[in-house]
């Protein structure tokens, strides 16, 4: 490989990892809900779209930086998620029906309402936030004059990545160190046993859905400076979120992080070497290959290694 080719490869890997960090955050919300509720939330991307609109209007009307909007949008999304779980999903868990997938179809309905309302109120125009640092970048040659190759690091992408990492670490602390976090994990493992141990599973489910929505809301705010915004954006990110969840393992937080990074790098590689339009196909080829050859997700490889099997 010539140095130019290495440069392209390294640059692709860097952008893939930066993208993967955000994907991981989107996937974490999904995997949390899936682990505790045992349902797929097909309104996940739409929730993110709502958060992005909140951040967008905060920026346009009050000049709040999208990164600061994380602290506004995430609590709002938490509240919205709590409401959805309390008043829409919980009643459905009680009704008897032929198909157990009713709750999944319900989330589809919620997603439809959200994206359609967004189209009505905000029109289907593509919008972007004109932040001052949108095109800023750090160049390797600025720091290392004699560098044989030139690599760049986009500032908003890197900041978003750092934010994503911080939120992920905070979530890890919450889930492993606090009482509520432990109760959530217990509910995910075995709801009945958790109930016997005095865990309020109903409350945990409500909190989990809120938490999942809050996480994806935060991801939306982080994505806003580097992406554009339109009402139909949700569907694509719902798909990304579940590809990540399958890639990792369902309900496994570590799996979601690895899944997000793997998907980010893989998409970046497809976009560079095959073509932009094929990146979504690459995503699904990977998804199907994972279902067929690696049903336990990437996490199952790690476990095999640990036990030396």
């Amino acid at each position: 490989m010539t140095s130019a080719q290495i440069e392209v490869l390294l640059q692709t890997l860097i952008s893939g990892i930066l993208l993967g960090g955000l994907y991981a955050l989107i996937g974490l919300g999904m995997t949390l809900i899936m682990g505790v509720m045992k349902i797929i939330n097909l309104a996940h991307g739409e929730l993110m779209m709502v958060a992005m609109y909140i951040a967008y209007w905060m920026f346009v009307l009050f000049h709040v930086d999208p990164y600061l909007s994380v602290f506004i949008a995430a609590p709002v999304m938490f509240f919205l998620g709590v409401m959805i779980q309390k008043f829409l999903i919980n009643p459905v868990l009680r009704v008897e029906s032929i198909l157990p997938e009713n709750q999944v179809i319900l989330t589809v309905g919620i997603g439809m309402v959200l994206s359609n309302l967004a189209t009505m109120f905000f029109t289907s125009d593509y919008r972007s936030t004109p932040v001052g640092y949108a095109t800023d970048a750090l160049y390797l040659s600025d720091y290392w004059k004699s560098s044989p190759i030139e690599l760049s690091l986009s500032v908003p992408w890197s900041v978003s990545f750092v934010f994503a990492v911080i939120i992920t670490i905070a979530l890890w602390f919450f889930l492993s160190k606090t009482d509520t976090g432990k109760s959530i994990r217990a509910t995910a493992q075995d709801p009945e046993a958790a109930l016997l141990m005095g865990v309020n599973i109903k409350l945990m489910r409500v909190i989990t859905f809120g938490l999942g929505s809050g996480l994806v809301g935060a991801a939306g705010c982080l994505l806003l400076p580097i992406y554009y915004l339109f009402p139909a954006l949700g569907g694509q990110f719902t798909l990304i979120a579940f590809v990540i969840t399958i890639l990792g393992r369902l309900g496994s937080a570590m799996g979601a992080i690895i899944g997000g990074l793997v998907l980010g790098v893989f998409e970046s590689l497809t976009a560079t070497y095959i073509g932009m339009g094929w990146a979504p196909v690459g995503r699904f080829v990977m998804f199907i290959a994972c279902l067929v050859f690696l049903p336990g997700g990437v996490a199952s490889l790690l476990r095999k290694k640990r036990f030396g099997a």
Binding site: P91, V92, I105, L106, G109, M112, V113, S115
Partner: peptide, 19 residues
């Protein structure tokens, strides 16, 4: 343009009351 909102609400109502 709002027909999806109505579809969504109809779907939610059907699933909750007429599963």
């Amino acid at each position: 343009t709002a027909h999806y909102t109505f579809f969504g609400i109809l779907l939610i109502i059907i699933i909750i009351f007429l599963p």
